[in-house]
Every structure is written in C-alpha cells, then in structure tokens.
C-alpha cells in the first residue's frame, strides 16, 4: 500500500523544526510501524537526505524506548501497545499519517522524534527504591505476600517508562508514571518503611520538572501500553497527603 507521511523534522534542540511530507510506496501489512520507518530511512539515505531519528531498542514492547504520536494518539491507535508492536495492517492504502514526537516542556526534543526523558530518571532517583544493602536481605520466604498483593503490585510495576502518559495528557502531567512506581512499592510489605518519605521525595522531584497537574482526564490510562490504572495516582495522592500530615515531612527528600 501507499502512504503519505507527515513527519516532524528537527535537527537539534535549538532548531524550531517543522513537518516534512514523504510518499512511501510498497508498504506491506506485516511490517511493524518502526520497520516502515526503517524502509523510509533507507530510501532517505540513498537519496542523500538525513534519516528520521527515533528512539527504539528492544522492539518487543518492553524497553520503553520507542514512542511518538501517530495521528494524534500516543503509540498509535492500537490499545495496550507500543509503537514497535503496531503493525501496518492497521492502516489502509492511501492513508495520511502524521508522526510527531512526544510534546512536553519536560521532554525537550533532541532530534526529529527523539526526546529527552531524563526527567523520569530524576524522579525515580529521588525515591523510587527500597533501600536494601546488597547481601543484607532476609531469606526470601520470610515475608509471606498474598498472591493477590503481589499481582496488584505487578500491575503497577509493569510500567515501561515510555512517557506516553505525559505525551497524551492535555496537561503533560507525569502522574501515572510516578503513581505507578509509588503504588508498586507501596503495595508490598518491603516498601512500607520508606513509604511516606518516598511519596514526598518523588512528588517533590516531579514538581521540580516542568510537568503539569492532574485534572483526571484519564487519557494517560487509555494510551498506556501496559494499561496501568489511574488508581496508582490515587495511591500516590494518598501517600503524599499522609506524609504531609505526618511527621515524616521534616525528613524532606534527602536521604539520611
């Protein structure tokens, strides 16, 4: 099939960027979306143009590297899937496809469709962990965890950190991402000692970045490739409120 692609091109962070239109012939339905871009890039290189830069790595939907907005929807229209798992059979001959990078002040564009998501790392660095020294852990079965609790924690732990939640939030909020990590660790007995400290530190770090606020629009949940529930946001809000109201707020985000 033939496609018309409108692709955001931007040389570097300073370049204002703009759309360029490409015609692509012979797209087959079994191709993944990224393979379609591979084919475009081979054509561009041969024609002496710069290929379209985009982040990608595992191409199995788990590393969270890939992601851009296709026709207005983060990761494209297929529910519960990343771009790399989207195949061209979901498009029709003659379709026009608009491809844009994640757009958020907190995710500056580095080139074309590549954005800087290091804000996510900074948030997790602030408190997205359970402090346990290597080799100091108790015997694994010494704390029984009900199967349901482990599964519930896993629902949130599955987050791949792709940033689609931010990209599709009208406010560019990172609540689903942060909520998922806080919920994951807060649902497990191991996560209890640092629960309030973690919520404070991570929320504080999130607020330092240029993300917006949550207005419960719930677009994040709808586009999340791992279909993470916004109940994680509720858990984050609760932990944050409890931490504010309890004494642990004096500890601030700093460890020890």
């Amino acid at each position: 099939m033939k496609l018309t692609l409108h692709v955001w091109r931007q040389k570097d962070a300073r370049d204002p960027g703009g759309f360029k239109t490409y015609q692509l012939e012979d797209v087959t339905t079994h191709m993944s979306f990224l393979e379609m871009l591979d084919v475009l890039n081979q054509d561009l290189i041969t024609a002496g143009e710069d290929p379209v830069a985009f982040d990608h790595d595992c191409r199995e939907g788990v590393c969270g590297a890939c992601g851009f907005v296709i026709n207005g929807v983060a990761h494209g229209d297929q529910k519960g899937s990343t771009v790399c798992q989207l195949h061209m059979r979901h498009f029709a001959d003659g379709d026009e496809v608009t491809i844009e990078p994640w757009r958020a002040k907190a995710f500056p564009v580095l080139r074309d469709l590549v954005v800087d998501r290091s804000a996510f790392d900074r948030i997790l660095t602030a408190g997205g962990f359970i402090s346990v020294r290597t080799g100091s852990a108790p015997e694994a079965n010494s704390i029984p965890i009900p199967s349901e609790a482990a599964e519930h924690a896993m629902d949130f732990a599955e987050c791949i950190g792709c940033g689609a939640c931010v990209a599709s939030c009208p406010n560019s909020a990172a609540m689903l991402f942060v909520g998922a990590k806080i919920a994951h660790l807060g649902l497990l007995p191991q996560g209890q000692p640092e629960r309030e400290r973690r919520a404070l530190a991570m929320v504080e770090a999130m607020e330092r970045e240029a993300f917006g606020s949550c207005t419960n629009y719930r677009a994040c949940e709808a586009v999340c490739p791992k279909e993470i529930s916004i109940s994680g946001i509720a858990r984050m809000n609760k932990d944050f409120r409890r931490a504010l109201l309890s004494g642990s707020n004096r500890a601030s985000g700093k460890r020890r």
Binding site: G72, T98, E100, K105, N171, G212, R218
Partner: peptide, 21 residues
C-alpha cells in the same frame, strides 16, 4: 498546565475518556 506544552501538537486526539474534565 498551559506552560507544560509550549509546542502544541499539530494533531492531538487524546482518547475522549472524561469529557467533563
């Protein structure tokens, strides 16, 4: 929230989950 996305999308169709929002 307005400042959080200085460059707008050309095409933005976030799933219509909660119109009231």
């Amino acid at each position: 929230n307005r400042a959080s996305r200085p460059v707008r999308y050309r095409l933005f169709r976030p799933p219509e989950v909660d119109y009231a929002a």
